[in-house]
Design a protein around this nucleic acid. Structure first.
Lengths: 356, 356
DNA sequence: TTGTAAGCGTTATCAC
DNA sequence: GTGATAACGCTTACAA
């Protein structure tokens, strides 16, 4: 690492002159602090003349209202919190998270809201403490949650605190929490089943996410039910924690069994990609010998070879909807609408009719 | 979208009772506000007895110091800003960004610093306004920058403002800015050239990033120079803006030329993955007919088939180093060290000796 | 060991 | 139209 620090030591550099305050601007414009505030908040009535004088003074002094002072006075931080899952000792951010963040940002930015990231592990005690502090310190005005779990302790807590929050997804039980979700969240998964059956597949293996997580369970149930309606049962139905390595291992085990599956369905694109590799290393060709389907619709799925058949869920749209919804909770009037489209099956190169 | 809003309307729900303040805690414990403050900041000396009374009172009232009030009083927001690049109308977050964020978080969390995300486009005027506001409103105590560009206007501005900031990477010219970078940033790229030459490749195409971006230019120059030292010139050397689609198109054009390259080198993994697809669609097999090398070392490269030979740069480590450095600038004493290892060539399945 | 009081930089409610 | 002035919730000399 190389490093040089002009900004660090205030030795040679001129001591960063004290920031101008509203009082300085008022003085320079020859008005009261109140007048300045009124101009910048378009509240109260100030003559065109003084308004211009004040604006000029502010420009001269490079003044912008202090966010912290405003936050204190208005008890609004103008910031939304997002809690990311931190499974163990490292923060883990899935492939789809990037566009989710982008979506949130795109709605927050126009209203000049900030986005504060936090990473918290799944230890219930830590969770509660963290969320409580999050709400109590009032660093954020509202928050966006993801990944509802069974008996999620966060929902009652937030309700008790009366803290504005929106869940992306569906709460597990009948917990009361504002949430955004598409009309039929599992539509794409059902199509997955139909697609495979239509191609003649009968021996199908499913590799799921994590136990106790709503999305993981719902997705799996929807798939298994869809097969059941056609009298089929998956040859395996395993939870591999959204972990690509575990998915690959489980895939190898299945493909080596005496009556191996002809189709492999995964609860995430990353796992599906790893599954393709596992199959390939066993000398099988995708999709000729085995078909593979992922979930998520990440961009790389489109670029890789074979391109990945998957269920695309618009992460960016989900981010936007979540942001819009919290903002509304806070009394803001964001532009867009919070409508979510159903995830949809995207048939690409990793699936084909069963051969043999 | 379905939505229900218990927290939204304060109709049925008991109006969220006013939060306890330090005064309430003081009253309940029968002490002054100063005493409470001292206990919670471990400053001044308070008897064990009163300390316990105060802590108990705080617990009873679920009180935590208000972050905004503290921020105002101390003129420290305890928050670091990170500016993400927003190329056009949408926020774009690269594949490696996720682990970069994770790295930053892992250093910030223990010191209870928050991370505020901002997305700004590359329009110089917007940039300057945004950074100025960022610094002036004091929402953040310091910031982390990425992607230095030629004549980067941000550096002089931040210097002028005396604002603590750290660049991840190398400044383009001789701008003064604290930065973190590995000792030999282009070591892996040079190895790339050697690797290909060693495999017998002589017709090599290079697909670069964006013009005027330091990393993009440095990477390209290092590669071309490394080839030149062995008397080789790339058959093509194009800038495709880190855009996988453009990379694929450029790849097709090259492979269809009269003397097509036997090796394709890309400035990002995403582009390399798209390049493999392009080659495959032309009926070529990777690595048998063409070798492919990416840059970045994203996880999917390891899981895909063929697995991707690439230059791995530890994004998480870069995030950690950036966070540590900016925290130090702020007078904090973060745990880890800000050392960066050189990126290294990871030879996997997408390269092989030239056949023909 | 504890308390008093003066801010930090705004905004909101009144008067004028 | 404009200006005093009192908060917002906390920290920190300085006194006691």
């Amino acid at each position: 690492m190389s490093e040089n620090s002009p900004a660090g030591a205030p030795d040679s550099a001129p001591a960063p002159r004290a920031r101008a305050t509203i009082a300085d601007v008022a003085a320079r414009a020859g008005v009261s602090r109140a007048a300045v505030s009124k101009v910048f908040n378009r509240t109260g009535s100030i003559s065109v003349d003084t308004t211009e004088r004040i604006r000029q003074a502010a420009r001269d002094l490079n003044w912008t209202p202090s966010a912290t002072a405003t936050a204190l006075r208005r008890s609004r931080s103008h910031t939304i919190g997002l809690v990311l899952d931190k499974p163990s000792d490292r923060v883990d951010i899935g492939l789809g998270t990037a566009s989710f963040l982008a979506g949130i940002q795109s709605e927050l930015a126009p209203l000049d809201y900030g986005l504060l990231l936090h990473a918290i592990d799944r230890e219930p005690a830590h969770q509660l403490a963290a969320y409580r502090t999050f709400a109590e310190t009032r660093r954020v005005d509202g928050m966006i949650l993801t990944d509802s779990v069974e008996n999620d302790p966060r929902f009652p807590l937030l309700a008790e605190l009366g803290f504005p929050a929106v869940l992306v997804g569906t709460p597990f039980g009948d917990e009361q929490i504002v949430h955004v979700e598409s009309p039929d969240p599992e539509a794409g998964v059902v199509d997955t089943a139909e697609h495979l059956l239509g191609l003649g597949h009968r021996r199908i293996a499913y590799f799921g996410g994590s136990p106790g997580r709503y999305q993981s369970e719902a997705r799996r149930t929807a798939f298994v039910d869809a097969l059941a309606r056609r009298g089929i049962e998956p040859v395996s139905n395993e939870l591999v924690d959204y972990n690509p390595k575990r998915a690959a291992a489980a895939t190898v085990a299945q493909l080596r069994s005496e009556s191996p599956p002809t189709a492999l369905v995964y609860a995430s694109d990353a796992m599906a990609i790893a599954g393709i590799q596992a199959a390939t290393e066993l000398g099988l060709s995708v999709p000729h010998d085995v078909s593979v389907i992922g979930y998520g619709g990440v961009d790389v799925g489109e670029w890789m070879t074979p391109s990945l058949t998957t269920v695309r869920r618009d992460s960016e749209q989900r981010g936007r909807a979540a942001a819009i919804t919290v903002l509304r909770l806070l009394g803001e009037r964001p532009e867009g609408d919070a409508t979510l489209e159903n995830p949809e099956l995207v048939v690409r190169g990793s699936t084909s009719a069963v051969h043999d």
